[in-house]
Design a protein around this nucleic acid. Sequence first.
DNA 1: GGTTGCCCTAGAGCATGGTCTAGGGTTTAT
DNA 2: ATAAACCCTAGACCATGCTCTAGGGCAACC
Lengths: 147, 147
Amino acid sequence: MTYTIKQVAEKTHLSIYTLRFYDKQGLLPFVSRDQSGYRAFTDGDLLLLHTLSCLKDTGMKISDIRQYMTLVMQGPSSIPQRQQLLRTHRDAVLAQQRAIARNLQEVDRKLSLYDSPMATDLVGLELAAARKEKTANGLPDPFSKLR
Amino acid sequence: MTYTIKQVAEKTHLSIYTLRFYDKQGLLPFVSRDQSGYRAFTDGDLLLLHTLSCLKDTGMKISDIRQYMTLVMQGPSSIPQRQQLLRTHRDAVLAQQRAIARNLQEVDRKLSLYDSPMATDLVGLELAAARKEKTANGLPDPFSKLR
DNA sequence: GGTTGCCCTAGAGCATGGTCTAGGGTTTAT
DNA sequence: ATAAACCCTAGACCATGCTCTAGGGCAACC
């Protein structure tokens, strides 16, 4: 049993356009064509496509995914290189996750400030200070433009 | 004391180009100009720029950052809208983080497969099955192209 | 055998987020 | 008063990752 590109698009929630784009980019070297030149996806192909989606959804670049898929095509001998590629990616993703968590703390601080009962006063004070800082430096006050 | 765009670029690790780009995009409505038309950043501006960086680094779109900064310019009265914007963003970021963690598990599974002492055999078996699946469906075997 | 619905490729177009160039003014030091 | 080192804008250009159009083939049904 094989699947047409349309069926795969439905299964994977990728668009037909995206699947063809990935193929054009060399991300699907494992997909065979039938006698009409149509792509014929096997169940095994869907597994590889799932791996591809995981890599893509964790932010791996297309060029790196292509490299990984090329290694996959080369069989077991490329396992060391695959490990290296995936480990590097994994480390980058974890670092990125930590960076985002750190930056999100700042957002949380803003949110708790806005949640405080004195939020209006505190924000008002900050604004007054910012305006004062401008005029103290002989600068126009940008806060009085649209108010 | 104010800072030139170059000094701010050094402090923030954003390029001068990026700072001007952000200004052009309406992300820096709080930055005043001196008499020569030069941007003059105050310390208060740097705080807002830091907030901006946190939003950007957590993946907020420029259009949403612009909206947030516009609300900031409007003073304390916009606090409810700011809360809504930040909360929506926060939730989206957390959901994204969870999705990435989930997809990264798949990468981890691959890595532990590759780490297994039987990795070569297991990967070889998978490959053999994939090839068999192709030929069983009357398809060319894509794995025998570059080997 | 014609209509419908799917498939294909090549290549144009688009959204996002920068990055850089050209042309020109300002400030500082010599 | 001129060079060096800044600053400015407008707009071109670029990389990434799609998304869509044009033009054409294949397959199934009526």
